[in-house]
Simulated scan of single mutants.
Amino acid sequence: MASTPTGGSTSTSSSGDPLRVAVVLGSTREGRFGPVVAKWLLGHAEPRTDMDVDLVDLLATPVPQALPGFGAPVADADLALLREITPRLAAADAFVLVTPEYNHSYPASLKNAIDWHNQQWHAKPVGFVSYGGISGGLRAVEHLRTVLAEQHTVTIRNTVSFHDCGARFDQDGRAVDPAADGAAKSMLDQLAWWAHALRDARQARPYAV
């Protein structure tokens, strides 16, 4: 994985400040459904007084396409891209990944964003909102859990998933099943608990890798 000098692993917010939550929109495919799902999630996260939310759209804020070889310097063009995204991941106290399922897994764009960063993920919680066909993107989430364990994250048990996603939202982007709203609250509540606990721990002592 690449070493990026443009951001660290911990935020500078105090324990009484709102949690900084980066919502990472993982799909960059043309005609993607992800913005509908992300906007719906933001409708639940942004009104919370305990969270400041930052939408990190990997289409609008891309990462470089290819990792450099081990020990090789990062090219200037790649550094320019990383300066747009790495500080935002570094500042986050927690993450929510909004991901579709492609071929029983998650998008290459999301894997690239994970691989280009290391310390920015350490000792932080990650929640998931997935969408897709019959499986609702849950296979993508299970793959992400194993990858993010290598990045020293804590993944949230409760997830939000939408199977047959195109039929799960009305024309205004609202979820047609009220249970989805309860699932979002449950996931965000768990995310907040872990984010507070881990932020306090990082401020008390450096995370040991």
Rank of each mutant, 00 (worst) to 15 (best):
P47W: 11
P64I: 02
V126P: 08
R145S: 01
V63E: 10
H122K: 08
A140K: 12
A66I: 08
P100I: 07
D50G: 04
L59I: 04
A90L: 02
A123S: 13
V147I: 13
P64Q: 09
N118D: 13
H122L: 00
I85Y: 13
E101K: 05
D115K: 02
T86K: 08
G69R: 12
A140D: 14
Y106R: 05
S130N: 11
Q120P: 00
A92W: 02
A108F: 11
G137D: 10
I134G: 15
L81F: 04
Y102N: 07
T61F: 09
L81S: 02
S105N: 12
I134F: 14
A80F: 11
G136H: 04
P73C: 11
H143V: 00
T86M: 03
R145T: 03
T49N: 07
L79T: 12
Y131G: 09
G136N: 12
G137M: 00
A77S: 12
D57P: 00
L89S: 12
E101W: 04
P87G: 03
L58N: 03
V129W: 09
T146K: 10
A108V: 13
A108H: 07
D54C: 09
V53K: 00
L138W: 11
G71I: 04
Q120G: 00
L89T: 06
V141F: 04
S105T: 09
R145L: 01
L144A: 15
L41P: 15
L110M: 10
W116Q: 04
S135W: 10
A92S: 05
D50L: 02
S105C: 05
P125G: 12
R145A: 00
L110H: 05
D76H: 06
K111C: 06
T61E: 11
I134T: 15
L89I: 02
Q65E: 14
D54L: 01
P64N: 12
R83G: 02
A45S: 07
A45W: 05
H104A: 10
I134S: 15
R48V: 08
G43L: 06
L59R: 15
G132W: 02
P87C: 03
P100L: 12
L148P: 02
M51C: 11
N103Q: 13
A80M: 06
R145E: 03
P125V: 08
L55Y: 09
F95Y: 15
L148I: 03
K124N: 07
L144E: 13
H122A: 01
L79V: 04
V96A: 04
E101M: 01
H122S: 02
V63C: 10
A45V: 04
P68D: 05
